[in-house]
Design a protein around this nucleic acid. Structure first.
Length: 628
DNA sequence: GGACTGGTAAACACAT
DNA sequence: AATGTGTTTACCAGTC
C-alpha cells in the first residue's frame, strides 16, 4: 500500500515525537472552557498537557474547542469523548474509525478503504487510512480499540501494533501519530475515580513501555517460543476482548509477540491454519453481519481454555505471557432453556470422535470433558463450568505481565453486574438498551430470535432486563427501564433521544389493535410524566427512518406483543447506529445465507434446512484423524 | 515397537 | 488472476 511506503519513509512517529519533545516542540495549550463539561481541575489540567504534533491534524482544527462551542449551543449527546489539549471529539457512535481521509474521494480502493473515517488524523501519511477502530463491545460491555495502522497507537504510553486490541477505560490516553487525547466516559463518579489513577498509570505505563518491548525482544528474540502452535493461537484469541480473532489477526499477534515468526511467513502460517482446522479446541465464528473482511473469526471451545491457560503458564521463560483480555463467555448453556422448545433440532456441532479414537491432545480426559463429549454425541451442547477463566484471572492464579496489560488497575469485568463500577463500561447502562445485537449475529447455534427477552448466548444475560423477569414483560416495565438510565450524570442527558424512540412506540402502538397501550397509564404511575417530543441527535437519516418505521410496523402491526414492539424500537436504533456499514455485503445476512466456506454440500443443506443452526457447524469427517 | 503429540509440507477447494 | 482462507492428507521426529 502506498501509505505503508510513505510510513516507512517517514519512519516511526513515536521517535519523531520524542525528538520533538526534546526539542521543546511539544505544544501545550490551555484548554478553553467547554460549554458542556464542568471543568474538572486535575483532569482538565492533564488534558491541557496532552501533546499536539507539529504537523497538521485535521481533527484538531475540525473539533477545536472553539468550534465545538460555536457548533453546540446546548446539549451534546455522546457516549464518550476524546479530549485533546485544544480539541474535543464527542463519540456519538459505537464504532469509530480513526484514520486519514482519502486524498481523493473519487479514488476507490479496496472496499475496506472506503469506510468513512470518523476521526480524521490526516493529512499526514504517518496515519493510515484505517488506523484504528474504537468500538463498543457489547459482550464485554467495554470500549475497545483495535489497531490497524502500521505505526500503531499508543495507549497509556504503550505502543500497540496492528492486530492488537486494547481495552479503553475512562482516562486512557491515546497517542495517534503524536497527537494525544484522553478517552473520557461520561459517568462523573467514575471519571473522578479514574482521574486519580490517570497520573500514576500514565507514568507507570511510560516507564514500562520501553522495558516491556525490550524484555519481549530479548527474551524471545529470534528463538522459537516454547509454545505449540495451538497454545499460541489460544494466547492470541484469549488476548482479544471478545475472545475471537480472525486468522490474519492471529498471524499478526503471533508475529508481534514472537519475533521468531517475523522472518518467515508461509510455513508457520500454514501450520496455524492446519491447527485451527484440525484442533477441535478451535471453532469458527461467523463475523457480525456488516463486518467486513475475509474469513471467519476463531474462538476457543470453553472447555479447552483452562487447558491452554495451564499450558501457557508452563513456560520455561521467565517472561509472563501476554495478558488475556478476553471476557470469558463461558455460559453457553442450553440446558433446560426455552431454546430447546423453540429451536428446531440442531445438528451436532462437533466432529465425531469415535470411541476408538483416543484424545490426542495429551491432556487427561477429565470426567467433565468426557461427559461433555457424551452430551454432544447426544446432540445437546452443554458447557461444563461457569466462569472458569475468570475465576483463574480473578484469583490472580494467572497474573498477567503488568508491563503489557493496558488496564491493570481496573477490576476484571468478569460479571456484567460489576459494570456499573467499571470505568470501561460507563455507556453500557445506556447502550445495552439500545444496541441489542441482532440475534442472527450471535455466534451460537440455536434460534434466539423467537425468545423474549433475548438471552445473550455469549454471557447468558437477559438483554432487556437487568434482572431476570417473568416473560413477557409489560411495555411499561420496559419503559421504566428505558427511563431509568441516563448519561446525564456525565455531560449530557440522552433521555430526549430515548424519549423520542419511546414516543415512536406510543404512536405505533396506539395505531394498532394491540392491547390498550399501557404507556400513558401504568408508566405514568410508576414514573412522573416526562416532557415529550424533544427529539435530538442522533437523528437517523431518511432511509434509516423509513427502515425503522417499517420495522415498527411489521413488528407491531403483525400483532406481536409489546415486548416485540420495544424490541423493534431497539433494533431500529441498532440499524440506525450501524447505518454506515449496514448496507455492506455480508457473508451472513438475515435474508440470505451465504454458503460458509469449507462447508460441504451436505452441511450446507443442513444449514438451509435449519437456518438457525448455521453457526459453528463443522463438517464431521470420520476419516479425519484428530491431531489434537 | 506402538501410540501419541506436534510440526511441516502440500494439494485442493473456495472466497475475496 | 492473485491472494487469502480453510480442509485434508501425508509424513516425520520426539516422547512416553
Amino acid at each position: 500500500m502506498a501509505s505503508h511506503k510513505l510510513e516507512n519513509d517517514s519512519g516511526s512517529y513515536s521517535e519523531n515525537e520524542e525528538n520533538k519533545e526534546e526539542l521543546g516542540l511539544k505544544k501545550q495549550k490551555k484548554t478553553e472552557p467547554e460549554a458542556d463539561v464542568q471543568p474538572n481541575g486535575r483532569l482538565e489540567s492533564r488534558i491541557s498537557k496532552l501533546t499536539v504534533p507539529s504537523h497538521e491534524m485535521r481533527i484538531v482544527e475540525d473539533y477545536s474547542n472553539k468550534k465545538n462551542a460555536e457548533r453546540h449551543s446546548g446539549e451534546i449527546q455522546a457516549y464518550a469523548k476524546f479530549a485533546g489539549s485544544t480539541w474535543t471529539y464527542y463519540v456519538k457512535k459505537i464504532r469509530l474509525i480513526l484514520g486519514r481521509e482519502p486524498a481523493n474521494q473519487s479514488l476507490k480502493g479496496k472496499e475496506e478503504d472506503n469506510e468513512e473515517v470518523d476521526m480524521n488524523f490526516g493529512p499526514s501519511k504517518v496515519v493510515s487510512r484505517k488506523h484504528a477502530v474504537v468500538e463498543y463491545n457489547m459482550q464485554g460491555q467495554t470500549w475497545n480499540c483495535t489497531i490497524y495502522g502500521r505505526n500503531g497507537v499508543k495507549v497509556d504510553g504503550k505502543l500497540y501494533k496492528p492486530g492488537e486490541v486494547v481495552r479503553l477505560s475512562s482516562g486512557s490516553v491515546l497517542d495517534v501519530a503524536g497527537l494525544q487525547m484522553m478517552f473520557v466516559l461520561p459517568n462523573a463518579s467514575e471519571q473522578t475515580i479514574t482521574e486519580e489513577k490517570v497520573g500514576e498509570e500514565m507514568e507507570e505505563a511510560e516507564k514500562s513501555e520501553e522495558s516491556s518491548v525490550t524484555i519481549e525482544n530479548n527474551v524471545y528474540d529470534n528463538r522459537k517460543p516454547p509454545y505449540s502452535y495451538s497454545v499460541m493461537i489460544a494466547q492470541a484469541i484469549l488476548s482479544s476482548p471478545d475472545c475471537m480473532m480472525t486468522l490474519s489477526n492471529i498471524y499478526n499477534w503471533i508475529s508481534t509477540h514472537y519475533p521468531y515468526y517475523r522472518t518467515t511467513k508461509s510455513g508457520w502460517q500454514n501450520s496455524i491454519r492446519h491447527n485451527l482446522s484440525l484442533n477441535k479446541a478451535f471453532r469458527k465464528v461467523p463475523r457480525k453481519s456488516g463486518e467486513q473482511g475475509k474469513g471467519m473469526k476463531w474462538s476457543i471451545e470453553p472447555e479447552f481454555r483452562e487447558e491452554f491457560i495451564a499450558k501457557t503458564k508452563k513456560t520455561p521463560y521467565k517472561k509472563t505471557p501476554p495478558p488475556f483480555l478476553c471476557t470469558p463467555p463461558f455460559t453457553l448453556k442450553r440446558e433446560n432453556s426455552d431454546h430447546e422448545h423453540t429451536s428446531p433440532p440442531i445438528p451436532t456441532p462437533v466432529r465425531n470422535q469415535s470411541p476408538s479414537t483416543p484424545k490426542r491432545d495429551g491432556s487427561p480426559m477429565t470426567e467433565e470433558t468426557h461427559s461433555e463429549s457424551k452430551d454432544r454425541e447426544g446432540g445437546s451442547y452443554k458447557t461444563p463450568t461457569r466462569a472458569v477463566l475468570s475465576d483463574i484471572i480473578a484469583s490472580q492464579d494467572y497474573s498477567p505481565d503488568p508491563s503489557t496489560i493496558s488496564q491493570p488497575k481496573n477490576p476484571a469485568s468478569a460479571s456484567p453486574a460489576t459494570n456499573a463500577a467499571y470505568s470501561t463500561s460507563s455507556p453500557a447502562p445506556f447502550w445495552k438498551y439500545v444496541a441489542v445485537p441482532n440475534p442472527h449475529d450471535w455466534p451460537h447455534v440455536g434460534s434466539y430470535d423467537t425468545i423474549s427477552p433475548y438471552r445473550n448466548p455469549l454471557n447468558n444475560h437477559m438483554v432487556y432486563s437487568q434482572l431476570p423477569q417473568p416473560s413477557p414483560r409489560k411495555i411499561d416495565e420496559q419503559m421504566h427501564d428505558l427511563q431509568g438510565v441516563d448519561l446525564a450524570n456525565g455531560f449530557e442527558g440522552i433521555s430526549s433521544w430515548r424519549e423520542s424512540m419511546v414516543q415512536k412506540l406510543r404512536t405505533a402502538n396506539s395505531g394498532t389493535s394491540a392491547p390498550a397501550s399501557p404507556l400513558g397509564t401504568s408508566t405514568s404511575q410508576a414514573n412522573p410524566p416526562r416532557p415529550w417530543g424533544s427529539v435530538s441527535e442522533p437523528i437517523p437519516n431518511r432511509s434509516a427512518e423509513v427502515e425503522n418505521k417499517q420495522q415498527l410496523e411489521t413488528s407491531v402491526g403483525a400483532g406481536k406483543d409489546n415486548d416485540h414492539a420495544v424490541r423493534a424500537i431497539l433494533d431500529a436504533s441498532v440499524s440506525m447506529e450501524k447505518q454506515p456499514t449496514a448496507q455492506q455485503p455480508s457473508e451472513f445476512t438475515q435474508t440470505g445465507q451465504a454458503r460458509q466456506p469449507g462447508l460441504g454440500a451436505t452441511a450446507q443443506a443442513n444449514i438451509e434446512e435449519h437456518p438457525s443452526a448455521q453457526h459453528y457447524i463443522r463438517t464431521p469427517n470420520p476419516d479425519v484423524r484428530s491431531n489434537i
